[in-house]
């Protein structure tokens, strides 16, 4: 059992390493992608500087906490898109029959698939997240907690993407719906939750789970709360289990590329 996990981990890392090598073939594109993404995120700080010149404590957040919010939004997005890029193209992979090669290998199909490609510009997001943490104020504890929550939040976002993508097993072409749904966390995650009221907050703790990926972690980083900490960890585990369950349930309906030839 333990060796199996170790071997799986080894393959996952190798896979990411090779995918990264592939992206580094063109050094100029590689670095410009990363740098552009950092500048891209940086641009939006202008918005917050103006907003905070109008009023302080928007949504109960200090300006420093806004930096943390931005850092975590970029970091979780970056982690998820860098290591698990293919979970965002899962529905088309299912429809086009691109699971075949992974199904004949003695490894976890889902992990093999989602780690077989990396998004280089997502490295810019990860770096940007750390830049924000340094501006926020560097402390070993903040740094470690931030890193942990970047990983955890990234896993939550990935799990949700897998769930949306897996719907393709049942409903076929769901790319547009999945893309739209996967865009929602990113849209909301850069705004403080305090400005929202009512039912939308419920969404943050269900289908747009940035409550667990961003808002609760920020609470924990600014003012450590053991209760929140365990809630976030357990919910993440639940999301992962749910994603795997749904994917493997759907896999039984997988039709490879056999349906590609059928056009009516």
């Amino acid at each position: 059992m333990l060796t199996a996990v170790k071997n799986q981990f080894k393959i996952t890392l190798l896979s990411v390493k090779y995918a990264l090598q592939r992206e580094m073939l063109n050094k100029f594109t590689f670095f410009s992608n990363i740098i552009f993404m950092i500048i891209n995120n940086g641009c939006f700080l202008i918005q917050w500087i103006i907003l905070y010149s109008l009023r302080d404590g928007i949504g109960g957040y200090s300006f420093r906490q806004i930096l943390l919010l931005w850092g975590l939004a970029a970091g979780t997005y970056g982690f998820s898109h860098f290591f698990f890029k293919n979970s965002y193209g899962l529905s088309s992979a299912i429809n086009e029959g691109r699971l075949d090669n992974y199904l004949v290998q003695p490894k976890n199909v889902l992990l093999s698939l989602i780690t077989s490609n990396v998004d280089v510009s997502a490295m810019g997001d990860i770096l940007y997240g750390y830049i924000m943490i340094f501006i926020y104020g560097f402390e070993i504890k903040t740094f470690l907690l931030y890193t942990l929550f970047m990983v955890i939040g990234g896993i939550v976002l990935t799990s949700v993407a897998i769930i949306w993508g897996s719907l393709a097993f049942w409903f076929g072409k769901v790319d547009m719906v999945a893309n739209t749904m996967n865009g929602l966390p990113t849209s909301f995650a850069t705004y403080p939750d305090g400005i929202f009221k009512g039912f939308i907050k419920l969404l943050f703790y269900t289908i747009i789970p940035i409550g667990f990926a961003s808002y609760m972690p920020i609470q924990i980083i600014t003012d450590f709360n053991i209760y929140y900490f365990f809630v976030v960890i357990s919910v993440t585990i639940l999301f992962v289990i749910l994603a795997f369950l749904i994917f493997y349930k759907g896999l039984k309906r997988y039709s490879s590329s056999n349906l590609m030839n059928v056009r009516v």
Binding site: L99, D100, L103, V104, K252, R253, Y254, S255, S256, N258
Partner: peptide, 9 residues
């Protein structure tokens, strides 16, 4: 062949 290799159920 895909059923024999475990790709299709």
């Amino acid at each position: 062949i895909k059923m024999m290799t475990g790709i299709l159920f």
